[in-house]
Design a protein around this nucleic acid. Structure first.
Lengths: 212, 212
DNA sequence: TCATTTGTTCGGATTCAATTCGGATATGCC
DNA sequence: GGCATATCCGAATTGAATCCGAACAAATGA
């Protein structure tokens, strides 16, 4: 008898459907009522189950949000991962643009359901639950460098990756969630592309090799 | 009779001290127990007042967080604002470094009290309450350009400002709150400085003037 | 087929934090 | 001192999160 963990993995199809419905309901409730306004009652009602059922598969409300988070992250990874081989052949600016537009499309899907989630989650996700996306993009970066031998002369790759990835993600999310954006998304994309592009060009022009 | 607003402005010294103690207690409780764990009871207890007193000056718990937010924002503005005249005379990379190190020092003050707050901030600060900081930095950017006439040839300043400011802030916060950072803060600072520096240099080298 | 076991769902009971409210206490003013 | 007002208190109320034991459905195996 396990001490306390009373959660259960859904084994029967019906149960799997319930879990799916709960997570889906989480997104819907979040869109309709925001974080604060999202109660277990709402989620249960939208999912068409009773509140008790929520706790059959999730230890608490937070875990439902976690599941939603994993769902979004999985979608992003799924979107980029298989396309890495073609992405690494692109020029830098078109590559940045491609990623950003795809990312936006994904976040705006289903009436901005994921975006709405992201605008809350990006910061407050307690642990680094964006970690898979970070790893994915870091991986893309590394592979990109490997396919463009001149780029191996670039200095401190981890730092640059950290900046570009985190800065990029947050800038885009912040822009997309801004009710009155003062700059157009296209300008943002061009700007981010230039940022990365100029950095690489500048760094390469500076000197023959990089320090430690 | 105003419909509902039963808050009061503190007029007597004693009341002002109470308000200060409550906001201070908010930071302390946040450091100790995290957002979820911060209850009105905790705040009241730490502040040395009763729960009822909280509601004398704040409509609800959220408003206490708002006050904390304003406090942090005010500190940042206070730190940068008076130094704008000297900041605009600096070279780009030292300027970026100066801002970032000061920003870090501020966030790490008092055992990381403000940093702790910042890492949660967006969760309960749905509206752009970072707006004053954005305006401040945008203002700095504009004045900087005015003091460096060659920079007036730079294209889309709003977009660049948006990227640098948002990207910069979030990258730094994310780095400072990372329990196991993979890059050193110094590298981050250098990277961000180069990012901006190379961008400006690249953009200036490109052509004589900027489009709309 | 049906009895038994195991998975699933339900919704009222419980717990706990946020907020309210009426009264007690302190302060400022004359 | 005595009045008016500001401040503070903390038990009572409210409502959401969570628990739990009973009801229901599906699988199993004779």
């Amino acid at each position: 008898m396990p001490p306390s963990s009373r959660q259960r993995r859904p084994s029967q199809p019906r149960a799997k459907a319930t879990v799916r419905a709960i997570v889906e309901a989480g997104f819907i409730s979040l869109s309709r009522h925001g974080v604060e306004g999202t109660t277990t009652r709402h989620i249960a009602e939208i999912a068409g189950v009773s509140v008790g059922s929520l706790y059959e598969y999730f230890a608490n409300k937070e875990e439902i949000f976690d599941a939603m988070h994993q769902h979004v992250v999985a979608e992003v990874v799924e979107m980029v991962q298989p396309r890495i081989p073609e992405l690494v052949r692109m020029e830098i600016r078109p590559l940045v643009a491609e990623l950003l537009y795809r990312f936006r499309d994904l976040l705006e899907r289903d009436d901005g359901r994921y975006l709405r989630y992201m605008s809350y989650a990006a910061y407050f996700a307690p642990r680094n639950q964006l970690e898979p996306i970070n790893r994915l993009l870091m991986n893309l970066l590394v592979q990109y460098v490997m396919h463009h031998p001149d780029l191996t002369r670039l200095g401190n790759l981890p730092a640059m990756g950290f900046i570009m990835i985190n800065g990029g993600i947050f800038t885009v999310i912040r822009h997309l969630t801004d009710p009155h954006p003062t700059v157009a998304f296209d300008d943002l994309v061009r700007g981010l592309g230039d940022m990365v592009g100029y950095f690489v060009e500048g760094e390469l022009a500076r000197g023959p090799s990089a320090p430690g």
